[in-house]
C-alpha cells in the first residue's frame, strides 16, 4: 500500500477537478440526450460518483477526513434515491407499458 500511494503522489489537484468535471458533464449530457428513464437514472449516478471522487480528492489534499465522511453520507443518500426512483420507474412501466419519458408529458403546461 505504501508504494501504491507513492505512485499517486504528484498528481496535481487541477487534474482531479478536470477529470470530475468531465465525468459530471458526461452525466449531464446523458440526462439531456437519452429518453430511457433508467439510462437517465444511471447518468444521475455518474454525476453523484464524480462528486464523490472530487470530495475524496479534496479531503486527501487538505488532510481532513470530514470529506470522506460526507462521501459516505452521499452514498447512503444515493442508495435511498435509487430504491425510491426504481420503484417509481416500475410503477410508471406498469401504468404506461413504457419507460420513455416522453410518454410522461401530462405534467406539461
Amino acid at each position: 500500500m505504501e508504494t501504491l500511494t507513492k505512485t499517486m503522489q504528484g498528481v496535481p489537484l487541477n487534474h482531479y477537478i478536470l477529470l470530475c468535471a468531465i465525468i459530471f458533464s458526461i452525466g449531464v449530457i446523458g440526462v439531456l440526450i437519452r429518453r430511457n428513464a433508467i439510462v437517465i437514472f444511471m447518468s444521475v449516478e455518474l454525476m453523484l460518483n464524480s462528486v464523490n471522487l472530487l470530495l475524496t480528492a479534496f479531503s486527501v489534499y487538505r488532510g481532513d477526513a470530514t470529506g470522506q465522511v460526507f462521501v459516505f453520507f452521499v452514498m447512503a443518500l444515493a442508495a435511498a434515491e435509487v430504491a425510491v426512483g426504481l420503484a417509481i420507474i416500475v410503477m410508471i412501466y406498469r401504468n404506461t407499458n413504457s419507460v420513455d419519458i416522453n410518454v410522461l408529458n401530462r405534467l406539461k403546461w
Binding site: 500511494t5 499517486m8 503522489q9 504528484g10 498528481v11 496535481p12 489537484l13 487541477n14 482531479y16 477537478i17 478536470l18 468535471a21 468531465i22 459530471f24 458533464s25 458526461i26 449531464v28 449530457i29 439531456l32 480528492a57 486527501v60 489534499y61 488532510g63
Partner: peptide, 24 residues
C-alpha cells in the same frame, strides 16, 4: 449544453495559479 457547462468549469479552473500536487 453539457459542453458549455464543461467549458465554464475549465475556464474557471484556468483562473487558478499552478495547483499543488495531491499529497497524502
Amino acid at each position: 449544453g453539457g459542453a458549455c457547462f464543461l467549458i465554464t468549469i475549465v475556464a474557471a479552473l484556468k483562473a487558478f495559479t499552478v495547483s499543488q500536487p495531491v499529497v497524502l
